[in-house]
């Protein structure tokens, strides 16, 4: 019997038994294989043309300077990268991105994990669903809307936040959050946590639901309290999700743009600038496209690193499972 290829019945039938028809069969087989490229050709073209080509092109652009008004282009080699190192705003932006990542990990990974554990500990299924749904709502809304909303909330004149602080006796804390160099970035990060925690809570909830009930039953038999169970079972059992969320959060934190543009546009005095907004500022406000492309290269390096980390992490997990 000739082994039939389940995917290529045509090849199997024409393969027959004799060696003479083997060559055309092979050819035909190769043709069918090649024909199946038609499934992916559109995606390869679109993804290639609009993602890969521009990203590669970015490196070429980063080694030029272009005067948009005259259209003149000069080759400057690595000058723009040299400028990156000397630009204090780039370092400030990197710091802000890192702060963004760090605080998001605290609130949107660990905070959300604890929250998900609390929610999943509830008896009523309806309340669990309701909680998850309500917390998720801000994640579904455009960051322009939430950014503008918080811009108003932070404003001393409308002052919902400041009025709220005063009413609970924390009036001393009230300040024009987005106007001060020291607090602007934190005001934005806080908005981001408000918007994003529901999303990660939802994912952690799903991960926790997958933990076998028997583990908890056994722990209760052993007399483990809720806190003990959290650390002995829930945390280790959702470790994979936690790791993945950490990586995803870091990647996201290095791509923030919308909320900064809407709330402070990087000010005051560039104190809330992140890499994305500084790129925009340089390329599209200052016309320094080459320098903007060099900043883009930094974003590329960071996201590639976290991306590689994610691939490594998921593949490692696959092996383990």
């Amino acid at each position: 019997m000739v082994p039939t290829d389940p995917h290529f019945p045509g090849a199997a039938t024409s393969g027959g038994t004799s060696h003479e028809i083997c060559r055309p069969a092979l050819l035909r087989r190769a043709l069918i294989r090649a024909l199946s490229l038609r499934w992916v050709v559109l995606a390869v073209l679109v993804v290639g043309a609009f993602i890969y080509v521009p990203i590669i092109d970015n490196f070429r652009v980063s080694m030029t300077n272009r005067d948009i008004f005259t259209g003149e282009i000069s080759q400057v080699g690595l000058e723009n990268y040299q400028r990156l190192l000397d630009d204090p705003v780039v370092w400030r932006a990197l710091l802000n991105n890192t702060l963004y990542a760090g605080l998001s990990i605290v609130f949107q990974v660990f905070g959300a994990f604890l929250l998900a554990a609390m929610i999943e500990g509830l008896k009523s299924r309806r309340i669990r669903n309701l909680c998850r749904a309500i917390y998720f709502v801000p994640s579904a809304i455009s960051t322009t809307v939430t950014g503008l909303l918080f811009y108003f909330l932070y404003q001393p004149e409308v002052g919902l936040l400041d009025a709220g602080l005063t009413s609970i006796g924390l009036g001393a804390l009230s300040r024009p959050w987005l106007a001060l160099e020291d607090t602007a970035i934190f005001g934005i990060i806080a908005m981001s946590q408000w918007q994003g925690f529901g999303y990660s809570t939802l994912l952690f909830s799903i991960a926790i639901q997958k933990i076998p009930r028997e583990l908890y039953d056994a722990a209760i038999m052993d007399g483990a309290g809720p806190v003990r169970r959290l650390f002995a079972i829930t945390l280790p059992m959702s470790r994979e999700m936690t790791g993945l969320m950490v990586i995803v959060t870091i990647t996201g934190a290095f791509q923030v743009f919308n909320e900064i543009m809407v709330m402070t546009a990087g000010g005051p005095n560039n104190s809330s600038q992140v890499l994305g907004t500084w790129l925009y500022q340089q390329a599209f406000i200052q016309n320094e496209f080459g320098y903007g492309a060099a900043i883009a290269a930094v974003i590329f390096a960071v996201t590639m690193l976290t991306g590689a980390l994610q691939v490594w992490y998921t593949s490692k997990r696959r092996v383990k499972l």
Binding site: I51, P54, V61, A296, I299, F300, M304
Partner: peptide
């Protein structure tokens, strides 16, 4: 091809912006 298409997930739109 799989690596090329799925690898696109890791690439940030910001990086491609200027070109």
């Amino acid at each position: 091809i799989t690596a090329m298409i799925l690898g696109g997930m890791m690439l940030s739109p910001t990086v491609a912006l200027i070109p």
